[in-house]
Design a binder for these strands. Structure first.
Lengths: 349, 349
DNA sequence: GCAATTAATGCAAACGTTTGCATACTTATA
DNA sequence: TATAAGTATGCAAACGTTTGCATTAATTGC
């Protein structure tokens, strides 16, 4: 009878599994089994139940469902954004998009939390202890050894975004293949005919800069170029420095004829400095940057870039995490996402 | 005894409120009341309970808590990202950062879902019907009349991000004051001495473009400039068009001496076209853009911009939503966030 | 046609809280 | 000293599912 549904709707009480069961003349457990579809229910019963569910406008109550099953059907994504700036990072966003997509496909909700350091209790620990999610994805910068140990002890599924500092082999993580990225950058520049390649990094102490510098050196040695200490320069987080750095680099007796930049903003400052010096790009000097965002293609000249597939990064992370959640002894996996070269005007000698 | 906690830990069973109660020699309800802090419990009992909670490393189980209380203590943020592109929008991200911050401050989790159109059942409806969140924030583009009606009927708390097309007065929403933004842009350009101001919009059919065009006209009339139909140009979503549009604009007998752009990429194309035409900015022509991101300040010359405080946007939305959740008859509110003018080289005649 | 096997469904406990109501214990009031 | 008015705590139901085990019904094998 429609009335039941109506009455329910009026007192704002939801239709429950019991209502369906009563109406169909079956046990609540049977209804439950139809919903979960993990047991064989006769075609006839199943159809009747489904029909009544439709008729009464039934929607499972996830509060109850999660409680009874002990799962949240949610995954947590930890962000270590100290400020808006970090949060607005395009890099991050495309990964999030991927993570959201995968989660939704698997029927999981995505819970996002900023791991503010000031907090009394870390937002991450809270997520874990209070069972707010079934597993978490966390950036390596948030993956303090203490936290990792805790997660492992609790057998709590987690994936690290970026290669972790410790226990590389005993944790699951996904990272961009930064080393291969700069290696291919160097090789491409060399192939185009540039002979002296400098590299301006954002901050040489970060894990990914270290990897990039490794790849840079490897690239040099593979093409037979000598490695020069002064060709590696560090902005130390302040991208404005790149402007001055470029000027002094070009002042060397042995000035470079190509510059690889750690990000778009660095590259912009480099272009600005080169213009001031009256040097033509790509003719007299080549410029290449890491990342295609936010504006590599809009620069003058458009910048060649080592593009990083952040969508895949997030996709892999989420997929692995969900596998881990659903299968407790799913083995740890380490994944490196390949980079891609986007050749544009700025290195087209 | 430590052993209890240890045993628990070993079988991976969590400590519950009952364990605490038993240990302290008190009823579970008393422990619950201490946790929730909404009833007066004698100082003595409270302290003992807190001590034992600490000792046994108790953490409330939110699955049970949510179920019993009927709340999720989570808010949902709906994104209408058809593709990665939209998702990576900086605009959006700073709002999300704000929303996350507010949620966390109020003890709410933040659940993010992409409202994919293809889905059988809309992700939003699912959130609502299955009680996955206590309230939602949704962009006006996702706020179809049908959905609005549903939410109102269910008395489900929601806030719209951006002025909605219908029921403006009967819903809560937060928007950027786009009209005031272009009005102040026009006035500023006029004050600097520019006489003929054109406006290139992204897509004239969107709600926010309509508002911006309104403000543009209002600004013109306030400074006593005539409105010319051909001074409003539409990229129709393809920002590359801005390049050609600029060239033909400057071809008019009555060419503009200032161009207001709908976003940074449009502005970039405008600059490129002007450079090709050999026109100097800001000397012969002024350029101003909406949005300070992603690269207004890095352009050549650095672009004056109508900056939009997307942090406030998110902050207001989240705060209002949580108020609404906690107080069912909290009245609907409409908020417009003011824009701010960032004057740089590109309009410094 | 009967036992053995398999398929379909029912029963009832359990999940860990919250919360309305009842009760016991204090303290103030007359 | 009895009574009223708090104050602090206990009792037990309820929240809507899931799930192990029991039971019944249907099918198969001989």
């Amino acid at each position: 009878m429609q009335t039941v549904a109506l009455e329910r709707a009026e007192d704002n009480m939801s239709v429950t599994i019991k209502d369906i069961a009563k109406k169909v003349g079956v046990a609540p457990s049977t209804v439950s089994r139809v919903i979960n579809g993990n047991t064989v229910i006769s075609r006839k019963t199943k159809d009747r139940i489904l029909a009544v569910m439709e008729e009464m406008d039934y929607h499972p109550n996830s509060l109850a469902r999660n409680f009874a099953s002990g799962n949240t059907y949610a995954i947590g994504l930890v962000i270590d954004a100290r400020d808006e700036q970090t949060f607005s990072n395009t890099f991050f966003n495309r990964s999030v998009y991927a993570i959201e997509t995968v989660s939704q496909n698997f029927g999981y909700s995505l819970l996002i939390t900023n791991d503010r350091e000031e907090e009394k209790q870390s937002a991450v620990e809270k997520m874990v202890f209070e069972k707010k999610v079934d597993g978490i994805i966390l950036p390596s910068t948030s993956a303090a050894p203490k936290l990792i140990r805790l997660l492992k002890k609790q057998k709590f599924p987690f994936i690290i975004l970026g290669e972790p500092g410790i226990e590389k082999a005993e944790t699951s993580w996904v990272d961009i293949n930064n080393a291969a990225g700069s290696e291919m950058a160097v090789k491409s520049l060399a192939k185009t005919g540039y002979k002296k390649i400098a590299f301006i990094v954002e901050n040489r102490t970060t894990v990914f800069s270290v990897k990039r510098m490794e790849g840079y050196q490897k690239g040099l040695s593979e093409v037979g170029y000598p490695f020069k200490e002064q060709y590696i320069q560090d902005c130390m987080e302040n991208t404005d420095n790149a402007f001055l750095i470029t000027k002094s680099l070009m002042d060397y007796l042995d000035a470079p004829d190509a510059i690889l930049c750690g990000n778009n903003v660095i590259a912009y400052q480099v272009l600005r400095a080169l213009k001031e010096l009256g040097l033509s790009v790509p003719g007299q000097i080549g410029v290449m940057t890491f990342d295609n965002y936010p504006f590599a293609e809009y620069m003058d000249p458009p910048l060649s870039a080592v593009d990083v597939d952040t969508f895949s990064l997030g996709e892999q992370a989420a997929t692995n995490l969900i596998r881990k959640i659903q299968n407790a002894d799913y083995e740890n996996q380490q994944t490196l996402i390949s980079t891609k070269l986007l050749l544009r005007e700025s290195t087209n000698k």
